[in-house]
């Protein structure tokens, strides 16, 4: 693992029952770059993504084999602290899921849970996070409005701001634009492009143009296996595996 690699996954398999949904995957995810996970529906992209901040712990019966190292630390070590892991590895979900609270309280939620309740601090964090998420200009005059009254695209950027507010190192995004209209999608894509300067981003998408636009590296999954992982430009222009080529040229999935 070179210094530039943030996440080191070794021989990872994930089981929901007897059959693995993710099969023996090894991958090195680079720091401060965007890595896209592509592949047909049901191939295990979300399952894999959720192992990186241990969200699979919540699913009864889910079981993993292998190792996931973030900065060299095994996050599945029995001594590892889940709260600390999820603080370092944030997540943005497919459907925008702001809390039924104000815009301000949504962003302040993470910092508050981590013990920061000073009003001045929170105001600063909220402004900074919303600015980073390219939402500040649109909401700065109505921070006390109910978050669920925002448009879908604004809600998703709010969720990104909420995730950024606890200063994670890694941001996992599971099809963050799939529920959004094209204009909001473009905004979120621009945002990812901006964020990857400071954060390690892993993004699941089944939109190949999106993968091509925002990511530096791309991993192609099929039936729970990692088929190919390379520079995004290479995956899209000169894939090594026949199955990758079939997928990106739209022959299946």
């Amino acid at each position: 693992m070179s210094r530039a690699d943030k996440i080191d996954v070794k021989n990872l398999s994930v089981y929901y029952g007897n059959d693995p949904a993710v099969k023996n995957i090894s991958i090195l995810i680079p720091e401060k770059k965007a890595t896209a996970l592509i592949g047909p529906s049901g191939c295990g992209k979300s399952t894999f993504l959720r192992t990186i901040n241990r969200m699979n712990d919540l699913i009864p019966g889910a079981r993993i084999e292998g190792n996931v190292l973030v900065d060299g630390q095994d996050i599945y070590d029995p001594k590892a602290d889940v709260v600390e892991i999820r603080t370092r590895v944030g997540m943005v979900f497919q459907r925008p899921n702001p809390f039924p609270k104000s815009i301000f309280e949504n962003v302040a939620y993470g910092p508050r849970r981590h013990g920061n309740n000073r009003k001045a601090d929170l105001e600063e964090i909220v402004e900074k996070s919303l600015t980073e998420a390219a939402l500040w200009g649109e909401v700065k005059d109505r921070l006390n409005d109910f978050a669920l009254d925002l448009s879908g695209g604004q809600q998703q950027r709010l969720c990104i701001a909420r995730a950024l507010a606890i200063q994670p190192e890694v941001l996992l995004m599971d099809e963050p634009a799939s529920a959004l209209d094209p204009i909001s999608t473009a905004k979120v894509e621009d945002l990812i492009d901006e964020l990857k300067k400071d954060y390690t981003i892993v993004i699941v998408t089944h939109n190949m143009q999106q993968a091509a636009r925002v990511s530096d590296k791309t991993a192609f999954f099929l039936s729970g296996e990692l088929i190919e992982f390379d520079e995004t430009s290479k995956i899209f222009t000169n894939p090594q595996d026949k199955r990758t080529e079939d997928y990106i040229t739209g022959r299946f999935g």
């Binding site: 901040n53 969200m55 919540l58 999820r86 979900f93 459907r95 899921n97 993470g110 909420r162």
Partner: peptide, 27 residues
């Protein structure tokens, strides 16, 4: 209460108990 609220809270590093008190009960 939608499960997505709970997921969002846990993904922010809140404990289950904090999630119950600060998200699920208010919702």
């Amino acid at each position: 209460v939608p499960g997505s609220y709970k997921e969002a809270s846990l993904a922010l590093g809140a404990s289950s108990w904090e999630t119950i008190v600060h998200v699920i009960l208010p919702a």
